[in-house]
Design a protein around this nucleic acid. Structure first.
Ligand SMILES: NC(=O)c1ccc[n+]([C@@H]2O[C@H](COP(=O)([O-])OP(=O)(O)OC[C@H]3O[C@@H](n4cnc5c(N)ncnc54)[C@H](O)[C@@H]3O)[C@@H](O)[C@H]2O)c1
Ligand SMILES: NC(=O)c1ccc[n+]([C@@H]2O[C@H](COP(=O)([O-])OP(=O)(O)OC[C@H]3O[C@@H](n4cnc5c(N)ncnc54)[C@H](O)[C@@H]3O)[C@@H](O)[C@H]2O)c1
Lengths: 206, 206
DNA sequence: AGCAAGTTGTGAAATAATTAACAATTTTTC
DNA sequence: GAAAAATTGTTAATTATTTCACAACTTGCT
């Protein structure tokens, strides 16, 4: 398979989530326009994404839901799964650990880190809290490749550095403060305020 | 001003956040490549965005930080500000209310809603919790135009319907369940798992 | 003053993402 | 069993976004 557009990767993840729900309801096939409706996009886009991953449906029957789920899994999951850490066991960090818990995917949150002694050596929804000083140690020990940063914004750059030194491969930064990492590390940043301001802008102009 | 690209709107919000920090440090001017470094983008892109909003910097001095902050405000803020509600006062909802509190922007969270009686008539970081049955009433009363959905995924579609009926203008859905709304309502959906899976994909393939 | 270095602003080119259009085929209907 | 309706797969066209390339100008330096 060639190169998949970033946007396609995002949508595949979303398709899979929707497909899992359909599968759970006992549905076996789905049409491109049904997926499109759920995701607020056009049927052509769905078909194109599916074409890009080399799957083909059946004319007038649609796509086999389970096959598509499995194929998307082959593309975006790793076989053995990846381990994830949450750095900053505050409101957001705990909310995320809790949210993840029970979702069976190939991604598992296996550790939390915090600098506050009160937060460590406790279990949060099945995930143990460690002191931030043990970051490198635990990352190696638990084979963690992705970290989610949920410390206060001011601490984010320092935490990013520590993660880089500890050999992390990907970072998801939920802090409003952008961090700098070497280019071989995949970095994704998200801040709610940007999303809210965007909604506000379109509310204003529409 | 013509039509601003969606991506530009997002970046303007981010620029402003970075600029506010710079201003707080006493900096008065900034170069395109400095902004670019912070945001992990190219200087040309910064200059182009700024060009699109009709601002011009000074050759070899860069952009006046305060002027740029104000201009971005003119574009993405409304004069009187907009009121926001959080629906679902759980872990994520409370984390968000708490996060917002104290950030002085033109967006204020003015109400929370929940179906659990234990959650209502309490104050969360300055925001009052109301019973979900009072949604329409309070939305009108408090002139709320944007809602953030943080209820359990299963309840999201029903909540979206209620919001639409109550006359909301924009919705930010943090639930993994996509909701359907009429096209005149601006809808933005975000799910952390998609972001994480995207990071995982790029970690895997790089 | 004259030159070098730095920086903005922008038209044009390139790249990325979406949409249109339609042939090919299957199923349903009568 | 012929016609109509539905649906996929894909090329081509379109639209959106980013990057290139460079002219224009400012500042600092000698
Ligand atoms: N709460 C939200 O909804 C929300 C939304 C978007 C972004 N954010 C951002 O996420 C971050 C966390 O938000 P929160 O509401 O969970 O804050 P919080 O204060 O509840 O949690 C922060 C946690 O990080 C820990 N911490 C502080 N310094 C640390 C360090 N150097 N190393 C390790 N741990 C450290 C603290 O002990 C605390 O447990 C903030 O940057 C916030 O801006 C929050
Ligand atoms: N926690 C996270 O980090 C995170 C991240 C991404 C998405 N999400 C999603 O956000 C949502 C909330 O997550 P959470 O961790 O806060 O869950 P939560 O269970 O802590 O909170 C949900 C809240 O919604 C209330 N509620 C339930 N039904 C309601 C209804 N019909 N009307 C009004 N209120 C109702 C509950 O009483 C509860 O207070 C979930 O859909 C979750 O998938 C959470």
């Amino acid at each position: 398979m060639k190169h998949l557009p970033h946007k396609t990767i995002e949508r595949l993840s979303q398709y899979r989530r929707a497909l899992l729900i359909c599968a759970a309801k006992g549905k076996t096939h789905i049409f491109s326009h049904e997926i499109a409706k759920i995701q607020h996009i056009t049927p052509v886009q769905v078909r194109r994404d599916i074409m890009l991953i080399g799957y083909t449906g059946t004319l007038r029957k649609g796509y086999n839901i389970q096959e598509l789920i499995d194929l998307i899994g082959d593309i975006i999951d790793t076989k053995e799964g990846l381990n994830v850490a949450v750095v900053g066991i505050g409101n957001l960090g705990r909310a995320m650990i809790n949210y993840f818990n029970g979702k069976r995917t190939k991604l598992s949150i296996v550790a939390g880190f915090d600098s506050n002694p009160d937060k460590i050596d406790r279990i949060y929804s099945g995930v143990k809290g460690y002191h931030i000083d043990r970051l490198a140690e635990i990352i190696k020990e638990e084979n963690i490749s992705i970290a989610i940063i949920t410390v206060p914004a001011g601490a984010a750059p320092e935490i990013a550095d520590k993660l880089v030194n500890a050999g992390i491969k990907g970072i998801l930064n939920y802090t409003p403060k952008p961090v700098q990492v070497p280019s071989h590390i995949y970095l994704e940043e998200y801040d709610m305020i940007t999303s809210l301001e965007k909604v506000a802008f379109f509310v204003k102009t529409h």
